[in-house]
Structures are given as structure tokens and as C-alpha cells.
């Protein structure tokens, strides 16, 4: 997408095994890393094409990630949000994906 024109409402996330998830740009922005990738002021390929290839995340996990992004967006200002259900077998991989996608160094690291 060339700079200056209006941003697309949806963006595409592509998993390591080639699954494509087309989600709302607003939802994608929940994840800090994806937001930076799509930053319209940057000249990243992702920002230009609106397609983010996430090479470290497979389709199963990315589907869950997308579910979370929408879940987060839906409950943005709500209080006492019910926890999203995460299948136990996915939680470790999802944890790694979450760590990567939140896009900021954890304070525990410093």
C-alpha cells in the first residue's frame, strides 16, 4: 500500500506453514510486533502490502492468536473479562508466540 492512500481495513497474517488469516487491522494492532510491522510510516514490506509473514508461528497457533486478538479487541474497555479458553496442549507454544508478538521487552528481563 503506497503512503498517502487510505489504509485497508483488513490485513493478512501468514503462518509458517502457509495458512493465511485475514483479520481487522484494528485487531492486528493489539499485538505490538504486528503493529510495528504494519506501521504506515515505515517502509516495511509488510506495511506496504498489508501481509505479515510470521515465520515462527504455525497455523494452529496463529489461529488461536487471531482468536485472542479479536477477544482482546472485543473486551477492550470491559471490566471483569472472562478468560479466553486455551487448550492446554497449545499453551506453551502460544506462550512463545505471545512473547514474540507483544513486541516489547519484558520488564523482568531488564
Amino acid at each position: 500500500m503506497p503512503a498517502g492512500s487510505t489504509l485497508s481495513t483488513h490485513v493478512t497474517l501468514i503462518s509458517s506453514d502457509g495458512f493465511e488469516f485475514i483479520i481487522l487491522r484494528e485487531a492486528a494492532y493489539v499485538a505490538g510486533t504486528i503493529k510495528k510491522m504494519l506501521d504506515p510510516t515505515s517502509a516495511f514490506a509488510e506495511a506496504v502490502t498489508g501481509r505479515c509473514t510470521l515465520g515462527s508461528i504455525n497455523g494452529v497457533i496463529l489461529e488461536k492468536v487471531c482468536e485472542y486478538l479479536y477477544y482482546n479487541l472485543k473486551h477492550k474497555d470491559a471490566q471483569d473479562v472472562p478468560d479466553m479458553d486455551i487448550p492446554p496442549e497449545l499453551c506453551l507454544e502460544l506462550l512463545m508466540a505471545a512473547d514474540y508478538l507483544q513486541g516489547k521487552p519484558s520488564e523482568a528481563l531488564s
Binding site: K76, D77, M84, P88, C91, L92, A97, A98, Q102
Partner: peptide, 14 residues
Amino acid sequence: DGAKSLEQLCIEKV
């Protein structure tokens, strides 16, 4: 406000 972070959810699940 809002949902817990995905990381937090996963850590609790683990």
C-alpha cells in the same frame, strides 16, 4: 480494563 494479556493467560494455563 480489558482482557488479560495472552502471555498472562498462557502462563496461568501452563
